[in-house]
Design a protein around this nucleic acid. Structure first.
Length: 433
RNA sequence: GUGGGCGUAGCUCAGCUCGGUUAGAGCGCCAGGUUGUGGCCCUGGAGGUCGGGGGUUCAAGUCCCCUCGCUCACCCCA
């Protein structure tokens, strides 16, 4: 066993998986960028008060924060979510509205790790601040949907609900409290504890013992004001107009307490555990104000990278991109020539690698094969003396050994670019799938 | 926070039931077969405090206790 390993719930992401992660974020940026969203990069560490406004009854902030006093005596926390940070940034800098931004990065919650749930977890996220129009709800919902499609996922389900205006929500919570308190004996012990913190959250219980009381609970739709009902109707009509399938999920409440009006979740079609929510979001019109900014409507969503990649694995889509270089240089004369040739190729915008430590030709050819290169350049004593290089194709399909060519050393890079279809200089951005 | 399963080579795992020479396999890695040519094949090699600590025993990878870690589920959440 190594002397050190990653802390629980943390992990290293190594090649080649790391390339997949990076591409995941690239795909997301490719969806939201053209829709007018700009990247915002808030700090990972904030005043703990920023997150406390997320909700006193939310376990995420009451029990799960990495919170500590820094050397200057500040009460700080590693961010347990992105939305609060982005709203704080808005309140602090007061950008012009609408403020359409996206974000990607790690968040931290002190939980017991399991499949699809880590203590450091990555999300990609969009937020729109300063727009009340229900059509922006639709835009945001559609962006998430298109993102899952772009990854190749076909079995994601969209669930929609509304929690009403603040007054509606308040009245509904009271109605729920009355209902559950009248049937306390039908609730599990855990359900009763949730009830004292937040009656809304009881609806989110996955305990079978609570199922009957929840099924009999009053519905939000009976407590909606006309304005909230209109807003939601427009959202639904917009999602319909875009041809995005969804279902109304009256029991859908979100984990954070700031949500009101539109809420939604994207559910993975193959993960059937409690971790089947790939992402979700909704409106949080009061959050900026709670953080000391002007009254500002807001809507957004976040997608969990881990869970979504698990869903991709289950559906067999969005595979790890092949890594490799264009050219592998084999040099049995000491390696100095390989040093120069790889440099020339890289300067010319082509990727190139080589072996070190003066290995045998056989060993270097093996390395060339493993490197994924399409072509090997071979420099031996003869080539060095004659100022030539052997160019050997490695990836010719069919039978027989491919022909190798001897080219003048001075024309080597030119020859490779002319006669071999080398990959683009930025393989990560390529659309090779 | 609660409960189940599992920790043996870089990786995936046998071996543990019923304690007994030097702890194995496949893959990967290194080298050789081919003194200038990868993939396939053959041969050889390196690599292990059997997660850690304690106990029982003449003897522990194997039995017992503790502990750490991983994992799955609950809770909660993305």
């Amino acid at each position: 066993m190594p002397a050190f390993q990653t802390s629980p719930g943390m992990r290293d992401i190594l090649p080649p998986d790391s390339a997949r992660w990076r591409r995941f974020v690239d795909v997301f940026a490719g969806i939201v960028g053209p829709a007018g969203y700009g990247l915002v990069i808030p700090p990972l560490l904030e005043d703990a008060g920023v997150f406390q406004r997320v909700g006193e009854a939310t376990e995420v902030v009451t029990k799960q924060m990495y919170r500590f006093t820094d050397l200057g005596g500040r009460d700080v926390a590693l961010r347990p979510e992105l939305t609060a940070s982005i709203c704080r940034a808005f309140a602090e800098h007061r950008p012009a509205v609408p403020w359409k931004v996206w974000c990607a990065g790690p968040q931290f919650r002190y939980e017991k790790p399991q499949r699809g749930r880590l203590r450091q977890f990555e999300q990609v996220d969009v937020e729109v601040l300063g727009v009340d129009d229900p059509h922006v709800d639709v835009e945001v919902i559609a962006l998430g949907w298109r993102f899952f499609q772009a990854l190749g996922l076909r079995r994601v389900e969209l669930a929609l609900n509304t929690l009403g205006q603040p007054d509606d929500r308040r009245r509904y919570v009271e109605a729920l409290r009355d209902h559950f308190e009248a049937h306390l004996d039908a609730l599990t012990e855990e359900g009763r504890q949730t009830l004292t913190r937040n009656p809304l959250r009881v609806l989110d219980s996955k305990r079978s013992g609570d199922a009957d009381v929840i099924a009999a609970a009053p519905a939000m739709t009976d407590h909606l004001s006309d304005a909230a009902a209109d807003h939601f109707a427009t959202v639904r009509a917009g999602v319909d107009a875009l041809g995005i399938p969804y279902r109304i999920e009256p029991r859908l409440v979100r984990g954070l307490d700031y949500y009101l009006r539109t809420t939604f979740e994207y559910l993975g079609g193959t993960l059937d555990s409690a971790q089947n929510a790939l992402g979700g979001g909704g409106r949080y019109d009061g959050l900026v104000e709670a953080l000391g900014g002007p009254a500002t409507p807001g809507v957004g969503f976040a997608v969990g990278v881990d869970r979504t990649l698990i869903a991709c694995d289950d559906e067999g889509v969005f595979s790890t991109p092949a890594v490799g270089v264009d050219v592998f240089v084999v040099d049995t004369t000491g390696g100095a020539e390989a040093l120069v040739i790889t440099e020339e190729l890289r300067q010319a915008g082509r990727s190139a690698d080589r072996a070190f430590d003066g290995r045998s030709m056989k060993s270097q050819m093996k390395a060339a094969d493993r490197s994924g290169a399409d072509v090997a350049v071979i420099i031996g004593p003869d080539e060095l003396a004659a100022e030539t290089a052997v160019v050997r194709p490695l990836r010719v399909h069919g039978d027989g050994t491919p022909d190798q060519a001897v080219v003048p050393r001075a024309k080597l890079v030119h020859h490779l670019i002319q006669h071999h279809s080398l990959r683009s200089p930025a393989p990560l951005a390529s659309e090779d799938e």
